[in-house]
Nucleic acid binder design. Structure first.
Length: 178
DNA sequence: CCCTGATTCGC
DNA sequence: GCGAATCAGG
């Protein structure tokens, strides 16, 4: 798979939306998260560096170093590439099959946007707790990390597997605690 | 372990 | 230019 204009545009859009590289890779398909990150850097739109002093890390060469007149590498200076007007369609329809949706709890607002998952970005280890109404655009999955063998994150496991009475009590105490 | 982005360098 | 391998961190 190559970086077509459309795919680059989608990459820029999703990256700007704060999706992770692996999520973007899942959306695009045919590329790994490494490819996404590499492309992001080549486009010069990384800007997500943490505090780390990662600018000068000693690195072990992957193969025997030839070291024969190897010129030092310059950091690639990104140049703005002109892109024709692209009509990006973001018509991602929710999956028609939604089995026995648990009750929508007011937990929704607690999920950071950056962690939310769509039907396309769920993995074996992301929380599949549905949030919102599948009939509207305001629908996504929790997307938090979940333990192996369970479909939900720790928080939603509690909700999903507790009796209703306990749930009500827990929410009451949670509300009191803040 | 799971994940994240950053960087290097053979291709 | 591309992206796997690697690194560093949460």
């Amino acid at each position: 798979m190559s970086w077509t204009n459309e795919r680059v545009e989608l990459l820029k859009k999703l990256w700007g939306d704060g999706l992770s590289a692996s999520q973007i890779a899942g959306e695009l398909g045919g590329v790994t998260r490494n490819a996404v990150i590499g492309k992001v850097h080549r486009l010069g739109l990384s800007g997500r560096a943490k505090s780390t002093s990662s600018s000068a890390k000693p690195r072990r060469p992957r193969t025997a170093a030839p070291a024969t007149g190897a010129a030092p590498k310059k950091p690639t200076t990104s140049h703005p590439q002109s892109i024709g007007a692209t009509a990006l369609k973001a018509d991602i329809s929710p999956a028609p099959v939604v089995a026995a949706k648990p009750r929508v709890e007011p937990i929704a607002e607690l999920v950071p946007i950056s962690q939310r998952a769509t039907i396309l970005t769920l993995t074996e280890r992301t929380c599949k707790w549905p949030i919102g109404d599948p009939a509207t655009d305001d629908f996504y999955f929790c997307g938090r990390q979940s333990d192996a063998g369970v479909p939900y994150c720790a928080h939603h496991c509690k909700i999903a597997y507790q009796p209703v009475a306990d749930r009500r009590r827990d929410r009451k105490t949670m509300a009191q605690a803040g």
